[in-house]
Structure formats: structure tokens, C-alpha cells
Design a protein around this nucleic acid. Sequence first.
DNA 1: GCGGTTTCTGTAAGCGGTTACAAGCCCGCG
DNA 2: CGCGGGCTTGTAACCGCTTACAGAAACCGC
Lengths: 354, 354
Amino acid sequence: MSPARPTSAPAATPAAQRAHATIHDVARVAGVSVASVSRVFNGRDHVRAEMRTRVEEAAAQLGYVPHAGARSLSMARTGAIGVVLPDLHGEFFSELLRGMDREASTRRLGLLLTVLHDGRGLDTLTALRGQVDGLVVMAPELDPDVLARHMPRGLAAVFLACAPQVGSPNLRIDNRAGAAAAVTHLAAGGAKRIVHISGPAGNLDAQERRAGAEAAAAEAGVALSVIEGDFLEASGTKVGERVAAGTLAADAIFAANDMMAIGALMALKRHGIAVPEQVAVAGFDDIPLARLVSPALTSVAIDIAAMGARAVAQLAARIAGTREESSGDASTGADEVIVPHLMVRETTRETDRG
Amino acid sequence: MSPARPTSAPAATPAAQRAHATIHDVARVAGVSVASVSRVFNGRDHVRAEMRTRVEEAAAQLGYVPHAGARSLSMARTGAIGVVLPDLHGEFFSELLRGMDREASTRRLGLLLTVLHDGRGLDTLTALRGQVDGLVVMAPELDPDVLARHMPRGLAAVFLACAPQVGSPNLRIDNRAGAAAAVTHLAAGGAKRIVHISGPAGNLDAQERRAGAEAAAAEAGVALSVIEGDFLEASGTKVGERVAAGTLAADAIFAANDMMAIGALMALKRHGIAVPEQVAVAGFDDIPLARLVSPALTSVAIDIAAMGARAVAQLAARIAGTREESSGDASTGADEVIVPHLMVRETTRETDRG
DNA sequence: GCGGTTTCTGTAAGCGGTTACAAGCCCGCG
DNA sequence: CGCGGGCTTGTAACCGCTTACAGAAACCGC
């Protein structure tokens, strides 16, 4: 059974101080009923002023704090939302969480973090039922069917940069447009042979960025070759070294994220290749680091914090929605697209000099 | 098999699909008692194989998932720990969370994030009772008394880089030793007039780093002047510009964190000051960015992820402890000190050339 | 001073699980 | 055949809180 409170002799024992006071203890000390205590703690209902002070005094004396778990069980509302993220790295995630927290804390919601270590952890999702009111899920690497199968049904959810899900709104980045903007910009700067360092093949963002880059290159009539990377700095470094060594012909590199771009940039610099004069470089994400490397990295910028905030806001709306109208209307909350914009810095030329 | 016991037409209603199945539904469909369902879901108890399959089939058919909230109420155990952090920025926090998650997920614990926006949010701490099993608190800026007053009593807690708390273990960084190492290194490199950009006066880490720097400077017999910063890049920039302009005499700058150091570094570079030849620069924290700026920043390194992991590990131990021995022994878990080490890179000279 | 409101307050039934305890079953043994 | 004892299983009492409902008290106009 549960922590065996000594039902008999509840008052005297000094050790009983350890255990937390419950609403019953407060009621007993104040000489009122538990309903009344609950009422004064939750405000709104009619309670006489005298009773209110009596209860408040008793509560203060006992150091009473309501038990969130019990409350959420009886109200069917936890006040927390689950955040499901892939294995987190770097500024992207702190910005995302920052944005989510900003929105969540104004709504007095907690954030319960769940990290997916490449698939492991999916089974914990269903265990979230009763612990959160809804879910923000970001799982760009996951098969939508697999994901759908693991979603606890009946829980509101918003997907972030995932493959399209049925019945739940999705927040996505317009990766195609962003990548296209970068490639178009490189071409306008005189690039003829662009190398694109892509993300892992299974990653949806990576696929879209690649497609956008290819489309824009075709449009601009420049050559584009693709080398698959893994979003980590090292894979950018490798490409940078090949370009520096001359085994890979390129006058511009467009990486699918900033860390790879920076890897390439550092490798080029190390080998004395002038950036952007000999080889231009552009990245994607515009992490804070991008403007601090030198030369400062041109990148496709996404307001990551805003994205996180939007996701939480949408989820909160959905939660409120399913709450008031019992007919859980899945169609609310259309997909929302975040349009990135290009931040031109020093690793690319603004105009054609080639 | 289950002889379609028509107790009260549980199957038909399509709307009932919406609501989640409870343990009672499973029990009814399987034709057993709730206790048995509970037993098969929690394993260990004696249950006959046939009953087990009956229950499992019923559960699968209904899509039953246990309700974490209800379970935690009756078991007095939530499986989550609260993480209380100051307003989060940059890589420091993603690394910290990463380390915490690593430890927490191996222990099958969730992380409930609470961000303190300079003091606001403190009142939500007590509301965590019943929602988490323990707390990891990082609040370097907070008065220990204020903090103590807001801690929900009876909840295990571990403090991270806080002013000493009574009765709870504290994980702290040996800021003094780290700062001293940096200053000693600068002096060994030939610096005679070091400027220390400190953190905000109210911040404990900042105070300790400053003290360590001052002690080491006295020891080495070099001048050290202190300018108060705020841990943000801009305050470093300001100092860098003054040094470049000649209105502040210095041949070395030691900043209390990396972002300020980078701000100073960038300002110096912008004004054509040679680093480290004319002015050496060192920071504190060794954020991933430190090695990516150029010249790469010398910094005092802390294994942030490991620190987060240790905090969670300690907390888990305390939770387990208070659980088995009801006499909540507050003395378990002595303070633990994390010793940082110096990462020498390009912004300082290894040996005296001055 | 009385019925009818209106305002308070208390009782008790949940919320969805866990688990102590007791009862039922089946077995072997004397 | 009666009985003690090990396995299974069910009943019901919690965990700590909210809240529908009903009873009590106070207030109104007549």
C-alpha cells in the first residue's frame, strides 16, 4: 500500500512532521470540511471571509502544499506538456526549448522532456498518458507510420518538422525555399560548380533541402553535386579537405546545416583557400555560432525559438479545444509553414565577380 | 474463448472509442478483476498463464495504456524529476540537459523543466509536489534563504552551483581553482596587466572566479583590474573596444565566461589588435564555440554534461534512500566538487616571450 | 413568523490505479 | 475423507484532491 501514514494518533508524533500535510489535515486543524479547504485554495467559489482566514492559517501552520498529482487525477488535467525530441545537440535545441518555455510558462504549463535516442524511448511515449496534457513531437528521422503507432491515442499532439501525420497539425520549415535561396544566392555570386553536403538520407529535412538545392541549381543553370553528410562538423571537414586538395572541384559549398558548413570552412581556411574568393560557403539554420566564426558564415536563418513557441501555442489551443467540445475535432489547427530567410555574411559574395 | 458476456453492451458505442480505456474496462472485457489486470501489467506476482493471455488480449483489443497519473498517486512515486534552471542560453544548457537526460533515461526517469525568469517562477516550485520525485536546482543568482523558503519540503533535492544549502548535497564547480589556473597561465605567458571581466556581482560563480583570479594575480605578482560584466557577449565587446582604443591598459583579458571573452576577442580583432601577441584572451566554460572562433579561445573547461549527469545520479540515490529508510537521512550525499581544467588554445601564449 | 431564495458548508462519490487481506481452489497426506 | 497449505484470484480500502448534490443558515418580503 502507500506510505503507511499512521492512521491512528495523527497529531502528536513529531516524526509526522516529515510526511506532508494533506487537505484532510488542514480541514481537521481548521475545523472545517475538506471541500471548504479545496474551495479556498481554488478561489472562485462562495466562502465566507472568516472561514477563508481560518483555513489559510491552518494551511500556513501545517506548511500545506496541494498535491499536484492528486489534483490532476481528479481534474483530468496535468498542466504539463510532453516535449519529444531527437537526441539533442547544440544551440538549436536550447533555442527551441527556450521558445517553448517562453510560451509554456506564460500559460503556466510545465515541459516534460523526452529524448529519443534513435528510436529507443518510443515506448515511453504511451507511458506519458496521465502525466501530460499533450505532446509536441519532433522526430524528423522517424517513419510516420512507426511514429503514429507509438502515439498514445487520445492525447493532443503537434508535430514539428515531421513527415505529415494524419489528424494532427504539423509545423514545418520550408526547407526547399530556404535551400533554393542559398543556392540561388551562390549562383548569383558567380558560382558554377556547387557542392551540396546533404544530411543523412533518412532525414526529411535533409531530403527537402537537397531537393530545393537541386531545383535552384537547375533553374540557375549551374552544376550541383551532392555528398552525403551526417549533420556533424566532421563530415563538413572531410568535404572541405577534398576541395582544398583539389580532388573535388568546387567554387562553392552549400551545407545542409551550419555545423557541416563550419567544418568545411575551417578545413578550407586551414589549407589556405580564400573564402569566399576561391570558394564560397553557405550553411543552414543560422545558429548563433554562424556569425562568430570568421569569416562569418552566410546561412539560412530560422527563428528557432519562435518555432518552439508556435508549437506550444498550437498545442495549447488544441488542448483547450478538445477540453470544451467533447467531440475531439481533429481537423483544427492546419499545418503551419515557417519560412526561413537568408542571412548573407562574409563567406559568400553578394554580386557576381567571377 | 471469452463467451461474449453481454454485461452491458460495452462493445458497440463508437463514441466510447474516444475515451481511454481504464483498468476496469480491461477487467470487464477479460472477465477478471482489476487486481488481476494490475498484476499482469506489473509482472512479478503469481498469475496463471491463461489469465495473463486473457488480460493481454483484452488490453490489446481496447488499446489500453495505464494512466501514469493514477499510478503515481497510489504508488507515491512519479518517475519524474524536476529540473530548475535559470533562464537558459546557448550550449551550456543544452549540454547540461544532455547530461541529465543521459543519466535520467537510463534510470527511466522523466525530466520536468522549470525555468526561473529571474525569480519569477519560484512560486511554481512548491506546486511540483506530487508531480516529481525530486528536484535538481540550479540557481546561482538566488539568495539561499529565499531559495530555501520556496523549496517544497519533503522533496529530495540536489543543488547545482548554488550557495550552500543546509541538508542537501551541492554540486559545485571549483571556480577559484579554474580562474587561478587561467590567470597563472596568462602570467606565465608574460602578461603584466590583466583585465578581468567578471560576471554580475550577485552571481556566486562570478564572485568565486573573481576571487580566484585575484588570488592568482597576487601570487604571480601581476596587476589585475576588474570590470563587471553580465555574462553576455556585449559586455566583453565593450571591454575589448576600450583596450583597443587604448583607454584601458592591458596585455591580457580574462573573462568570467566564454561569451564575454569572445566579445572581447572579436572587438580586438576588428580593431587590428594581434591576439595573443599584443593582448592575450582567456575565457571560462569552454563552450563548444570556443574552439571554433579564430584564433581559437583558451578557456577553462568544465565537463558540463557530466555535471548534469552527476546531479541526476545523486538525486536518484537520494530518492531511493528516502524511499527505503523512512527516516529521511539528510546527511547522505556529501558535497561534490567538479574540478575544471585549462584548455590552452591560440588566444594565449604558452611560454613567456614578453 | 413563515415560505422562498440565496449563500454557505458538508457528505460522499468519483478520478484510475495498487495492494493488504481474505477467500477459493486444488493438492497431497495421514 | 478431512484437513493443512501453497497458488490464484477477488473485494475493497486506500492515494489526495475536486465537485455534484443536498442540507443548513441567513435573508427577504409579506
